[in-house]
Design a protein around this nucleic acid. Sequence first.
DNA 1: TCTCGCCCTCCACTGTAGGGGAAAGCGTTC
DNA 2: GAACGCTTTCCCCTACAGTGGAGGGCGAGA
Lengths: 130, 130
Amino acid sequence: MVRIGEAAQAAGMTSKALRFYEKFGLLPAAERTANGYRYYTGETINRLDFIRRGRAAGLALTQIREILILRDAGRAPCTHVRELLAGQLTGLDAQIAELVALRATVAEYHAVAAAADPDACDAGRICSYL
Amino acid sequence: MVRIGEAAQAAGMTSKALRFYEKFGLLPAAERTANGYRYYTGETINRLDFIRRGRAAGLALTQIREILILRDAGRAPCTHVRELLAGQLTGLDAQIAELVALRATVAEYHAVAAAADPDACDAGRICSYL
DNA sequence: TCTCGCCCTCCACTGTAGGGGAAAGCGTTC
DNA sequence: GAACGCTTTCCCCTACAGTGGAGGGCGAGA
């Protein structure tokens, strides 16, 4: 029975984020007190913790939503989560490989630039290092 | 003296991108034929090639613009480029480290999920793997 | 003359995960 | 009764590098 600010703080989020999650479909429409304020129970707090862990694992909100929808439908999301994690690994590996390759390219340019004589700059080109 | 489409194709870009670069300040306002069509000379084509190389090195358009502004002002951008490349390397290393750490986290979750008995799913939690 | 392919400008939109701030209401306290 | 702090809804804005499409014009070939 906590208000939005307390719930947010407990989960290390902002009130804005909680309202956004509700609209996005990660949280059910919150219960309201007589004055219209949202209030949350332990169940929602658990949900917020789950969302935070999912985010920490690099899952997108849409993917977290898929998991929650499965669980809300009474079906164990285990298999789906396993697939998501596997896809996450593949994607991360691809991203890392891309960045490592880019880093090699940039490192090469930088090595050339660092070794070059600053006065030997070819005025006919925009920059000889690139 | 080529039209925008040909210039774009020569540089492996789209006409849309060239207009965008012009508005963004990477290209000077293009010369126009009597009917209002843009036309480009070898100088601009070189500039486009430079932009493409900069992009391939992971530089942002604002950074490429800085280099071009220096060169257009008659000053050799070498030192600035060297600094940009150094910053680029630092940023890439940070990004890679972050992704590698995330990958380790996800790999651990995935290993647990892959080893778990699908029927041993705790219905009281949203997902035991996360 | 009709159509086809380019070209022009201008506006909106893409994806991600919210953030900023306005205008207004509620409850507590001084 | 006035000030505070928290809440509500609503709408716009952010970065990035363009892309998509509407509506209209230019020039060449059949």
